[in-house]
Design a protein around this nucleic acid. Sequence first.
DNA 1: AACACGCCCTGCGCGC
DNA 2: TGCGCGCAGGGCGTGT
Length: 274
Amino acid sequence: MPELPEVESICAGLRGIALKKKILSANILTDYSLRQKIPRDIVDKASNAKIIKIERRAKYIQIFLDNDVVIIIHLGMSGKVLIKDNDYKYQKHDHFELELEDDVRLIYNDPRRFGLVIYSDKDNLENLAIFKNLGMEPLSEDFTPEKFGLILQNKKQPIKLSLMDNANIVGVGNIYAAESLFLSGISPLRPSNELSEKEIKILHGNIIQVLRNSIKLGGSSLKDYALVNGEKGYFQNNFFVYGRDKENCKICENKIKKIIQAGRTSFYCDNCQK
DNA sequence: AACACGCCCTGCGCGC
DNA sequence: TGCGCGCAGGGCGTGT
């Protein structure tokens, strides 16, 4: 479920319920490794601290505590953070839990275990390996058509791959790469350095637009529930191309094509996108 | 440096 | 109905 809009929606949900609450205990629930092993001392670091801020960075959730510890969560492909109460019974693939005051429990569940739960000292965040090579936040002032163009100008790789590379722009995954390219009339196969100045500007605008629109709808829910309260996001109903191969293009009624790029599926309309 | 590829996992839907 | 296969929203390590 988790590209930028989904992670942003989850953060918003968490803020609503967990902000200013004290962590009574943190519990590691499985012995499995996620992308990394959950550090055992996260239990001591998090217990009895208060949650003062919850922020997204790229596709990571950062939970800031009042003891300068930051809990960092990534959802991988199948991770969820759910809000439960004291009646909750653990489910398969529950890996981590924050038990808060006022009968609130945050449960991290991840069947495929591509996700991540670690912590860091606040002052050391930018030095973390996972944050060191991240590119621009597409919804920040930092992301301008000019900087976007500079990044693309030396890359021969297909534009779709450049969009999905977090060293360039963070948070854009398979869905939003496909959708923003469709809205821009640009084929996912086009070499990055062959986009015109005008196309770069259009694509820049559409990346921002599509991410914002999705956040408004709570992100996209495919088979999993995306939001912390177990409800679904609704942006999937607005997909022009993602997951719509062999269906008709919503603009020209040609059949949507499905191809493989760098091992990932790409969907596009070869009539609307050149 | 830039890029291609395989791998980390479980679950589910499809075709037979 | 049951089974095997392919595929899934991400990221990283290794090779050229």
